[in-house]
Amino acid sequence: MKKLLSTVALGIAALTIGQAASADPSRTAKLVIDGTEISTHAKGMAGGPLDELYSGWLFRSDETRALQLDDFDNPAFVFVDDGETLFNKVDGSEGKSCSSCHEAGDFKGLRPVLPRWNEAKGKIYSMENYINDCRTERMGADKWKWSKPKMTSMVALISLQSRGLPINVATDGPVADIYEKGKELYYTRVGQLDMACSNCHEDNYGNMIRADHLSQGQINGFPTYRLKNAKLNSIHARFKGCMKNIRAKPYGQGSDEFQALELYVASRGNGLSVEAPSVRN
């Protein structure tokens, strides 16, 4: 009953998406962290769905935006520190840690091109896949779950190495079909509310949904620390949350569907800077 009533409430909310009425999203705020400016705005690709690309950071309030201006204000960094500890921690039967083979800095440039085709595995790979391969194949350790804190902390640490670099995922060649599948998912209406990603994040970004500003749904800032749950949130966990909000049955985290969607959504932000780990509401 409660669920039904809230479904109705959300349905009404969906109908009443209106022009921005209050608060203060900004198209011009500058994200400068420790003297380095990170671009939060880029031109969309010619022929692409969006002429202007805006990071989700621009859609947040002054106070929330401020949390990202200093890595000592940004609460996500307690998890980056955890990631660093895990990076140096020996785990599994081979007596190895990540740092036995890598330095975190080695991964500069990786985050902007993920997810991508892994030829050896014959499959699309997100960062979580690479981390788990290292754990199971080289370290002899157990897999980590897709969105649990150990994984999101490690993804944050590795993503941070590329902060400021433009997102640049490939959409052709071996991933062309996956890209098309992701695009189809993006525009397909699902769930009791019968909504597609595009209804909010393409048709209505900048407008209010109840008391919130809808963003373009860009994923350049992930993993992101949400004020709501005070932890790092993975891309797939956010997709799951969106699907639940529109009363649809979410795909699995790490599923083919969510990886296809991750590729497509990432490509919509090609040109925006990696902002991980970001802070959102």
Binding site: M208, I209, A211, D212, L214, K228, G241, N245, N281
Partner: peptide
């Protein structure tokens, strides 16, 4: 304190 849309 607002009741969020999908963010809240």
């Amino acid at each position: 304190v607002t009741i969020g849309g999908c963010g809240g």
